[in-house]
Design a protein around this nucleic acid. Structure first.
Lengths: 190, 190
DNA sequence: CGACTTGTTGATGTATCTCAAATCGCGTGG
DNA sequence: CCACGCGATTTGAGATACATCAACAAGTCG
């Protein structure tokens, strides 16, 4: 059973699995957060997804991982060995569908939205994973945000500044976000 | 059983399901091709995926469709009712994982690649779905290619011209593609 | 063989990237 | 508690890739 397995703990930046490694496990975030990314030959990085408490990741069929998963801050993860428990896949279907849906949502964001719209969408997404949806701390540095949204850190920063200047959000230090005009932010992402 | 079900036939542009409609079916392409897309409020469209013979689409958990699926050319589709056959989900897990993987691959393309690189990746993807991988016809108009790659039709056209001028591909009419330097094209996508 | 749709090419505009510098924020140690 | 130092973030100036607008060419179909 999943819940009988111990929690593995990872420090900030530690990799949970790496591209090229032999696959065969399914992982679930217990606390903290995880980024899953791929790197192109020229060094460009795309973060495919962020995962927070309760979310499954690393779900795939192939023998090797194509992506890398790293802890963001101190993070706890439980894993199932799918080789030993092939029947466990059944219960994971909803998780795969959820991952798939998130991936599609994100395609929309990076395919057809402007920089400010992407950042707005990102803030809303993060707010939904926080206890207080209108006031929260980002777990990750700007570089992660940029590589998630297909932008540069400078453009992310400028977009945040624009949202701040319009009075839609307030910034509290480098990571603190306060959403003042939630509705306006939502309308930006249409 | 899936294979006992009749094939539904659709003409070019006909929708198989539409955004907002009640969901609950899984679909498989028998012949022809399908585009799955979403439209933002301001009219911008993002094609999430193209599906060809044998590929499953429309796989999701929710009660309503978020996307629209349309036939590209005359297309045959078989469907399963997942309400009546909830156990059918089991056999669909590999299909969901495949869709998910494709979606992630595409995230990489639209998030971190230049226009020419995106078009190169697209041509390789299409070549893999064709009988002759170095000489094939595109099923879809430029607008579809553009909306799939997060570009405009003009940029797609210019990118094709660049690849042609470099001698990497040859164009035969509006839809015919011949890949002359397969290796060079692959290296472009790294 | 025209009319219409689809695709290409050209000229210009603009959002985002790149390169560079200033500033902030935070941990450390005096 | 405050000064220091360093990485993270912001801001600025200039370059560039892609979008936009407009005209042209090529296919397609009656």
């Amino acid at each position: 059973m999943v819940d009988a397995r111990p929690i593995s703990s990872f420090v900030d930046g530690e990799s949970i699995y790496s591209s090229g490694e032999r696959a065969g496990q399914a992982y679930r975030v217990e606390f903290g957060a995880v980024r899953v990314y791929r790197v192109l030959a020229n060094g460009r990085r795309q973060i495919l997804a962020f995962h927070f408490g309760g979310s499954w990741f690393g779900l795939q069929n192939e023998s090797q991982h194509r992506s890398t998963a790293e802890a963001i801050g101190v993070t706890g993860v439980k894993s199932i060995n799918l080789q030993e428990n092939p029947h466990a896949w059944q219960g994971l279907l909803p998780a795969v569908l959820e991952n798939f849906l998130s991936s599609q949502e994100h395609q929309l964001v990076i395919g057809r939205q402007s920089a400010v719209e992407r950042v707005a969408a990102f803030l809303l997404e993060m707010s939904q994973h926080s206890a207080h949806s209108h006031r929260f701390e980002l777990f990750m540095p700007r570089m992660d945000v940029a590589d998630y949204l297909g932008l540069t850190i400078e453009t992310v920063s400028r977009s945040l500044t624009k949202l701040k200047n319009k009075g839609i959000i307030r910034l509290h230090g480098a990571r603190g976000i306060e959403i003042v005009e939630y509705g306006v932010l939502q309308r930006l992402c249409l």
